[in-house]
Simulated assay, not measured.
Amino acid sequence: MTNTKTLTRKNIQTLSGGRTASIVEIDGEEIRLVASTRRAKTISATMLDDMIQLSVPEFISDEHIIRSARGLMSKIKNRQHHGDKAPSDQDLMDRALHLAKVWLGDQVEPSSVVWSDNQTTRWGSCTPSTKRIRISTMLRGMPQWVIDGVLVHELAHLKYPGHGKDFQDFTHRYPRMKEADAFLDGVSFAQHQIGKESPTHG
């Protein structure tokens, strides 16, 4: 068990969006710690490249991090052990329609939304002419609010093909869009560091 109330950070890296990544050890296990000046209070955890990644506010005590990490690490390991049922294409479609109604004023409606194993260089893609949206299976297991951010991004392309100001204003109706983008930037950076091709938004 980690008895100390302080963490020793190694492999410290500066990321975009006011974030810093490092490797720390909690209860004998190495985890990736991503501290963000933009994150207010919440702490979240996900599994990335066989290592738990903990996202925390920049100004938070190590004691709080350690205490929170133990519970989150346990939940992730239990989820992996029991193998949660992956959401289906229908679940994804239903979620997209819900997001379009709540945040995009029902101004867009996809014809289909499916998981795609072929989306290895993009988190998602959209074909406005057919209104079809494909979401990378690499997102499975990530926090729902991150997946929601990608869904809103692709839904917005049904109204705005490019990434101009109108598109940005439309997507940022979803209140956690900046946070979702920052999270995915961190994932892409980590994958780039280990030599993997980094996915981008479509």
Rank of each mutant, 00 (worst) to 15 (best):
3 N>G: 12
5 K>D: 09
6 T>L: 04
7 L>N: 05
8 T>V: 14
8 T>E: 15
9 R>I: 01
9 R>S: 07
9 R>F: 07
14 T>I: 15
14 T>G: 05
19 R>Y: 02
19 R>S: 13
20 T>Q: 14
20 T>K: 10
21 A>Q: 14
22 S>Q: 09
23 I>N: 12
25 E>S: 13
27 D>A: 09
30 E>G: 05
33 L>M: 07
36 S>W: 02
37 T>K: 07
37 T>V: 08
41 K>A: 07
43 I>R: 10
44 S>V: 12
50 D>V: 00
51 M>S: 10
52 I>T: 12
52 I>W: 02
54 L>A: 05
55 S>M: 09
55 S>Y: 03
56 V>Q: 01
58 E>M: 14
62 D>V: 11
62 D>F: 06
65 I>P: 03
66 I>L: 08
66 I>A: 09
67 R>Y: 02
67 R>W: 02
70 R>D: 05
71 G>N: 03
73 M>H: 00
75 K>M: 01
76 I>S: 00
77 K>S: 04
78 N>F: 06
79 R>M: 03
84 D>M: 10
87 P>A: 10
87 P>K: 12
89 D>M: 08
89 D>H: 14
89 D>Q: 07
90 Q>E: 15
94 D>S: 14
99 L>R: 06
102 V>N: 10
105 G>A: 15
106 D>Y: 13
110 P>G: 09
110 P>F: 13
111 S>P: 01
111 S>K: 13
112 S>M: 09
113 V>D: 01
115 W>I: 06
115 W>G: 03
118 N>W: 00
120 T>K: 08
127 T>W: 08
127 T>C: 12
128 P>F: 14
128 P>E: 09
129 S>E: 15
129 S>T: 14
131 K>Y: 09
131 K>C: 11
133 I>Y: 04
135 I>C: 08
136 S>Y: 05
137 T>N: 08
137 T>R: 12
140 R>F: 04
142 M>P: 00
144 Q>E: 14
146 V>F: 08
147 I>S: 07
149 G>L: 12
149 G>V: 08
151 L>Y: 09
151 L>K: 08
152 V>S: 13
156 A>W: 11
156 A>C: 13
157 H>C: 13
159 K>R: 14
161 P>R: 09
167 F>C: 10
167 F>A: 12
168 Q>A: 15
169 D>C: 04
170 F>V: 11
170 F>L: 12
171 T>N: 02
174 Y>P: 04
176 R>G: 00
176 R>Q: 13
177 M>F: 07
178 K>M: 03
181 D>P: 00
181 D>G: 00
184 L>D: 03
196 K>H: 13
